[in-house]
Design a protein around this nucleic acid. Sequence first.
DNA 1: AGAGAGATTTCCT
DNA 2: GGAAATCTCTCTT
Length: 209
Amino acid sequence: MPFPWRGPVDVSFFLQPTNVLAKALLGTVLVHDTPEGLTAGRIVEVEMYQGPWDKAAHSYGGRMTERTRIMYEDAGHAYVYFIYGMHYCLNVVSGPHGAPEAILIRALEPLEGLELMAQRRRLAWPRKGLCELTNGPGKLAQAMGITKRQYGWHLAHSALRLYHDQDPLPDNQLATGPRINVNYAEEAALYPWRFWVAGHACLSVKNRA
DNA sequence: AGAGAGATTTCCT
DNA sequence: GGAAATCTCTCTT
């Protein structure tokens, strides 16, 4: 019975530079406690976005809209956005207050509540493997029951929260590369701001291509 | 395995 | 009007 793993993260966990926090998130466990049940998954792939100078960031140029407002708040809040008219994506707000930085959660390894995840994903049962429940940003939001409702929640003390589980990832298991689907962002499209657990089975499909 | 279309909100020009 | 921090399905090699 793994839950509650090693222990919940403290607010101070989020007060690290974004590039440090992005790597520290790998291996931590995201938990969502809902009336329908508890789901949990280990973070295995992330991307960081550092507005206002990052052309791929929603906050590029200091843009602040109703959608991006939370990016300017304290680190640790959830930034959830709706994309392509279909999907939600979860980010961890990062950086100092007023600095619009965030870390996109791109893939999880499913750990708890697998049947509920499959139900939310409308999969009778994963045919190709459990990873297909959560191996992409839109998929994991759906499997974890994350929608705009969770926008602005704090990941240290809400029903959507993070747990430490293992020691920090050793350097030889950390892989780095350009971010996915940001080709429009000119030089920023090449920044190596995607981080993942090397060789993990549950990486997003595009990461493995 | 790889390409293409469709789902259709939020934001920018 | 058009593209986007995506995914699933279908058609073609």
